[in-house]
């Protein structure tokens, strides 16, 4: 395959008789060297993994009339506050009859915030899990799976999470909490500016 026909090289003056047969084998070692050198270069300079992204849609700044605003039902609302040194505070509902909601402290571990959210969103979690199993069994196409999943997540009884971050929180905390939303199949959540009331609630905890 790699031999090159150089037989005619031997007989320069047309005298084919007695022409020496020159070996037609070429030494490929330098070429292999070169090949591997280039491979090494390309391997080291490439990024095989494209970075992942998280898509996020923020509310627009346009003023919405008071009566058109979506009011979050207090019983469905969960407020998550990102504090300093990776602490998370959460409470359910809002201030009612002059009684402050009970604020709990937790962290980003699997036993912390996630467990609470799963417990709150249990019905949807079970349904989505069933759907995922069905997807594996019956080979539902991805689009249909996503569509049905978002239908399930728009459940009228599912909690609505309000995320508020204090100035001491880091970007990682924000991503982590958005991640928890994805893990716990929470369909409706919003990132909102923190209010003085929330700051006070945390301060009162003395942590």
């Amino acid at each position: 395959m790699a031999e090159v026909d150089t037989e005619s090289k031997g007989g320069k003056k047309g005298k084919k008789k007695g022409a020496k047969k020159v070996s037609t084998r070429i030494d490929f070692t330098p070429m292999v060297d070169l090949g591997f050198l280039l491979i090494t270069f390309f391997m080291l300079t490439t990024t095989m993994i494209k970075p992942q992204t998280m898509e996020i849609a923020m509310p627009s700044r346009e003023k919405v009339a008071e009566d058109e605003q979506t009011k979050v039902k207090a019983s469905r609302a969960i407020t998550i506050i990102l504090g300093k040194s990776n602490k998370v505070f959460y409470y359910e509902g809002t201030r009612e009859n002059d009684i402050d909601p009970k604020v709990e402290v937790t962290d980003f571990s699997a036993k912390g915030l996630r467990q609470f959210l799963i417990q709150k969103n249990y019905d949807v979690m079970v349904k989505v899990e069933d759907l995922r199993k069905e997807k594996l069994d019956k080979q539902i196409p991805d689009e249909e799976f996503e569509k049905r999943k978002s239908e399930l997540m728009a459940d009228k009884k599912a909690p609505i999470v309000i995320i508020k971050a204090t100035d001491e929180a880091s970007y990682k905390n924000l991503i982590d909490v958005l991640d928890e939303m994805a893990i716990c199949n929470i369909g409706r959540y919003a990132i909102v500016d923190i209010t003085d009331y929330d700051r006070e609630l945390i301060l009162n905890l003395n942590i």
Partner: peptide, 22 residues
């Protein structure tokens, strides 16, 4: 938000999705 750019992507690195949650 001032510019009315409300959709964007946050670049993250991959982490394993926790299985068997419930």
């Amino acid at each position: 938000q001032d510019l009315d750019e409300n959709r964007y992507n946050l670049i993250t690195s991959l982490e394993q999705n926790p299985e068997k949650l419930i």
